[in-house]
């Protein structure tokens, strides 16, 4: 396991209630997890505990066996757990794409030729090599977020936490970013995607539903989407495709109503029509 929280509680200095109430969660190496919740559910607060941006008021967070409260290991923890934020404009430091990707490795004091190798590799991974000399403001939102991912990849992380990284993107940019996440996960990087889009939860291996600082559900997308009542209670809903086939099934038609992706929905409708 990579990240483990034990009875993690946290309250913001000016907050009324606890943002997190005794969270116990384990993120394993190589997993693709989506953390979903309504605004104020504590999902971003949880994410900020994964790389020691916030330290628990009570309980313990460990990354690869190291406690995040251990200040001496801060660089080590932040190198292992990279983070991509919501606003694509506010996390790019360099005036040129490749300089921004090099920013993390520079901070770690890595030798220049090794940095060059890492920058090449990271840009190739997110498919942004042809933009390496561009200025950030010449890129689209999705491209900027891919540059941010490359900046983290260049630090050779174990895990990337995306804190609502898709929420400011247009549908095209979001699709690009989700593809990047899936392919990174296939090559072995642990992904934690914090989001409020259920469609994004569907492509993860594991979904954690949060409400009011508690974990409501934790399981595969199929398991989680099965319980629509709990989701509605958390201010969420199953993805539109799942709802759609459920409605068709409600009309008395024989359709596979256990559907979580567009692909499965298309297949289900095809089998229905061929019957």
């Amino acid at each position: 396991m990579l990240i483990e929280t034990e009875n993690l509680s946290y309250k913001y200095p000016r907050g009324k209630d606890n943002a997190l109430n005794g969270i116990n969660v384990t993120i394993n190496k190589g997993e693709f997890t989506a953390v979903v919740g309504h605004n104020g559910s504590g999902k971003s607060t949880l994410a900020k505990h994964f790389n020691a941006l916030l330290l628990p008021d009570a309980g313990v967070v460990t990354v690869d066996g190291v406690e995040t409260a251990n200040q001496g290991q801060l660089f080590n923890i932040r190198t292992k757990i990279g983070m991509v934020f919501q606003n694509p404009d506010n996390q790019i430091v360099g005036t040129v794409v490749e300089e921004d990707v090099a920013f993390g490795p520079e901070n770690l004091g890595i030798a220049p030729d090794e940095i060059a190798r890492r920058v090449d590799k990271a840009l190739a991974t997110v498919d942004m090599e042809q933009y390496r000399k561009r200025a950030p403001h010449q890129l689209s939102g999705g491209q900027k977020q891919r540059v941010s991912i490359a900046g983290i990849l260049a630090m050779n992380p174990e895990c990337i936490v995306l804190d609502e990284a898709t929420s400011m993107l247009d549908p095209k940019g979001r699709k690009e970013l989700l593809q990047a996440m899936t392919s990174l996960n296939k090559s072995g990087t642990t992904i934690v995607n914090i989001t409020h889009f259920m469609e994004e939860a569907a492509i993860a291996d594991r979904v954690i539903i949060m409400k009011d600082g508690n974990i409501l559900l934790d399981g595969t997308p199929r398991e989680v989407f099965a319980d629509r009542e709990i989701l509605l209670n958390a201010g969420l809903d199953v993805p539109p495709v799942s709802r759609f086939v459920k409605e068709i099934a409600g009309l008395g038609l024989e359709i596979n109503d256990n559907v979580i992706s567009e692909q499965e929905c298309v297949e289900a409708i095809e089998t229905l029509l061929n019957r």
Binding site: L53, G82, E99, F103, N107, I115, G151
Partner: peptide
């Protein structure tokens, strides 16, 4: 901060 920035100390230069 997430990208380990900690001032100029111990920093290398890419270019």
């Amino acid at each position: 901060e997430c990208r380990c920035y900690n001032g100029g100390e111990g920093r290398t230069k890419f270019k």
